[in-house]
Design a protein around this nucleic acid. Structure first.
Lengths: 294, 294
DNA sequence: ATTAATTATAATATTTACTTATTGTTCTTA
DNA sequence: TAAGAACAATAAGTAAATATTATAATTAAT
């Protein structure tokens, strides 16, 4: 593939000729020459350079944008052609929400590794929005998330049902009461931060049962929330995935309440696009076979 | 840009190494070497070749499809970069219906030529469907047609109102009568072939006024139809654009009939896409300024 | 001013690309 | 079935491009 574009892209990303040369295993003058050749060919300067800063200019921005797309297409072409002869292989860029990334993805990756060691997965964690927009900009190949994302380029398919339970520490007097909305509203709730899929479920739950809790504590991770619940700090609503071990060890108990468990779907999100290499097929199948889905 | 892909594309199109070499102004062995190098790089054969046939195989099809897109993107990039510094320039591929292509486009091209001689237009003629699908496959940059085309990738904007009149030769006794649907149905009608925009208007006209003509003659071009009408062979319904000269020379007369002239819009169709170079802007503006539009 | 960090230039070496000449196929046709 | 035509592949040499090393030039920071 056209080396000029590759070199330009690297320089534009690193904003540094010498470092780009290193990464590309070539000498710095070679990089200078490539850039000069490309600028000559296009008849326009692409990089404003002093010895302190290298910056793409307006023309450089255009070339960078197109270059990204051109190189991506070339790579996709290589992958599809290689797929014709070889086992599924190559990079597979997965995006996942926190919950899925922490509790579900590890086993998926293990299965993938076992049967298809030539596939090299990488994982980005983010909320549904993040994953969706990374999909649109082709920064990941597939997403596993807790919500849907509306964009004409993206399709979402449910692959697993998740159940969320209200949990408390084992010491709470609450455990002996009959659980009513009023009882729940009287408790301290520990919930995830704004933007989290689990937070959203909790808010919908409150709304549905007309609960406005006395005290809300927001914590940034599921792990911390579980520790808070264990310590008797308050109660929470969490996915069964995240509390399995604590239940087994009897550190945390589920509360019986009509309307729980709350069910929600996990979704596979992917680009509505013609590019569908073996590696992606294999991973998607593995995910969708994981449990009673659809 | 990557010469390997360019050479491959040319060979795949021409199905012939030697002819590709000629067109690319290089020797035949050079072409052989490029193809071999590309096949080596991708690790797969792309062309099945005997000395009678050269054919792309499955892998070759993938490379051809991606190659087309990659080279197109590279060209678009070059055009946009050049637009930053230079006057509108480069190839501009226009698609037009027969009527527009014959009667309207020449003056557009003349205007374009006058002010922007660096733009090199090429014209493909076809019906709305043809033009629409050529737009989708990026074989043209803009279309001027008589109908709309529904595809998420394509947008249509009206740019001019067209009027169609019923015409007859000057000798017809018809000219002295009061024109009613019954009178029209009694005449011989000369109409365009199936698939033509004008044909469609005529059919709608018949339907609307419950006319089923005694005799229909289908002819393949507007020019031939006009000659038929002049010769008294029958009457027709044609765009004012096409009959201007014949009216002036009093070879053909318009019939007065309630519901004529029939109005329809001409549309600019373009790809709903980020690529919008100066040459395309200039041409579109010229077209849309051409008459009272929108 | 000196130094450090950086890109550009020059000269040279190496690799790749391209050419001509030739060979080896396969299909056609006489 | 032999000869010829049409074609791609190969070989060998040449031209062109792409690298490298060494060095210069520029700028910012100390």
């Amino acid at each position: 593939m056209d080396q000029h574009l590759i070199v330009f892209m690297k320089v534009a990303q690193l904003k540094n000729f010498s470092r780009a040369a290193e990464e590309l295993h070539m000498s710095q003058p070679a990089v200078s020459q490539y850039i000069q050749a490309l600028e000559r060919e296009l008849g326009v300067k692409l990089l404003e350079r002093t010895n302190k800063y290298v910056e793409v200019n307006k023309a450089g921005k255009i070339v960078y944008q197109y270059g990204k797309s051109i190189l991506r297409e070339y790579e996709q072409m290589q992958t599809l052609v290689s797929d014709l002869q070889n086992e599924p292989a190559g990079e597979l860029r997965i995006g996942a929400s926190y919950t899925i990334g922490e509790y579900l993805l590890p086993s998926f990756l293990a299965l993938l590794q076992k049967d298809y060691s030539a596939i090299i997965p990488s994982v980005s964690i983010g909320n549904t929005e993040d994953i969706g927009s990374k999909l649109v900009s082709h920064d990941i190949d597939i997403g596993l998330v807790e919500g849907t994302f509306t964009h004409k380029q993206v399709i979402s398919v449910p692959f697993q049902i998740d159940r969320l339970y209200i949990i408390s520490s084992i010491g709470k007097s609450l455990l002996k009461k009959r659980i009513t909305p009023e009882v729940l509203a009287a408790e301290t709730w520990i919930i995830r931060e704004e933007g989290s899929g689990t937070r959203k479920v909790v808010e919908e739950f409150f709304e549905k049962h007309h609960i406005s809790p006395n005290r809300l504590i927001t914590l940034g991770s599921t792990q911390t929330i579980k520790e808070g619940v264990e310590a008797g700090l308050g109660i929470s609503l969490l996915s069964e995935l995240t509390i399995q071990k604590e239940i087994e060890l009897d550190r945390i108990r589920r509360l019986e309440f009509a309307g729980t468990p709350i069910q929600r779907a996990f979704y596979v999100m992917k680009n509505h696009h013609e590019f569908y290499p073996k590696a992606l097929q294999v991973f998607e199948n593995l995910v969708r076979r994981s449990q009673n889905s659809d």
